[in-house]
């Protein structure tokens, strides 16, 4: 095989190309051979340590002497996260939502970690970040970022809503009021001045919405004097006049067919009790209450004191 080439003392492989081209049988450098051997050894160790090849005869696979599995690694990672969250979760357990809100560190923790809970349980109706969702009839579930709350915006009220659920109620008025009366009422309400028509008091609307039309939170009746509507939102694609028309139509529909009235054309406004459904633990409900409160619409326990400086600055 080996044959000496005339230009070198190193033996060649014996093959000559193009008359004088031959391969010298030089050894690769030692460091390179060491590297190659080390790599081969690494492969052996790696194959033995990790699950690496199937054993068809016994129908399983070689489990590896290191005992590594993807599930174990995942569990270890979860354990790491739990360890970080554990100390916060332990503190949350014995606290009221208001106390959590008063603790800036816990509030920070809840606003950061509550996103998943909210996404899993609330966002289906209320939208990601509480922006509300729409169906063909209008707004399906209320926007949670604003300062208008049917059942109250204090932390305890929000907590109670999540825990016990809410169900709006308004009877259908199609058999009680004439079309003209409904039209007059709807126009007055749309302007935010329900009392501009005597019908508002005369037809008993005040029983639920209050004499001033500002709603009664204990009943969940809507405030009819503000700029936020439970079932209608402004459509940016339409101009003001068109939006007003759309709003009046929506209000007429609500008055005519009611809310949760059993009428197939009525509005539906149902939120299940997350406690009864067993979907959320007490701690999770508390976290969600704080999370929702922090969207920006939460109202503090002493609204007068908190609003005073803001009002002053506005002037």
């Amino acid at each position: 095989m080996s044959e000496k080439h005339e230009v070198s003392s190193v033996p060649t492989t014996g093959h000559v190309w193009d008359d004088d081209l031959a391969d010298l049988t030089n050894q690769p450098p030692k460091w390179w051979m060491l590297g190659l051997t080390a790599s081969a050894l690494f492969c052996v160790v790696y194959f033995l340590y990790y699950p690496s090849f199937p054993l068809s005869t016994v129908g399983g696979y070689f489990k590896g002497i290191g005992g590594w599995t993807a599930i174990k690694e995942m569990e270890a990672d979860v354990g790491e996260v739990e360890a970080v969250r554990g100390k916060f979760e332990a503190r949350l357990k014995g606290m009221t939502p208001a106390a959590i809100l008063a603790d800036s560190e816990l509030t920070e923790y809840v606003t950061r970690s509550g996103k998943v809970l909210f996404g899993d349980n609330c966002a289906a109706c209320h939208g990601q970040n509480g922006i509300g969702t729409h169906d063909r009839q209008g707004l399906f579930a209320p926007i949670l970022n604003d300062d208008d709350w049917l059942y109250g915006g204090k932390i305890e009220d929000i907590h109670a809503s999540i825990e016990g659920g809410r169900q709006g109620m308004m009877m259908a008025h199609k058999d009680i009021l004439s079309a003209a009366e409904i039209d007059a009422l709807a126009n007055a309400v749309a302007k935010g001045q329900p009392n501009s028509t005597p019908l508002f008091a005369a037809k008993g609307c005040t029983a639920c919405h209050g004499e001033d039309g500002k709603g009664i939170q204990a009943m969940g009746s809507a405030n009819l004097t503000d700029k936020i509507w439970r079932f209608e939102v402004r459509n940016d694609k339409l101009n003001d006049a068109e939006n007003m028309k759309k709003l009046v139509e929506g209000i007429k529909r609500t008055i005519t067919y009611g809310v949760n009235s059993g009428n197939p054309q009525g509005r539906v406004a149902v939120m299940p009790s997350f406690k009864e459904a067993g979907k959320l633990s007490d701690a999770e409900i508390k976290k969600l209450a704080v999370y929702v409160y922090k969207f920006g619409g939460g109202q503090s326990d002493a609204p007068a004191a908190a609003k005073a400086p803001a009002a002053g600055a506005a002037k």
Partner: peptide, 16 residues
């Protein structure tokens, strides 16, 4: 960014 702004009950707009 979600929502970009919020309508409040007195007609004012709030950004977060």
């Amino acid at each position: 960014r979600q929502p970009l702004y919020v309508n409040l009950s007195d007609g004012s707009i709030q950004n977060k």
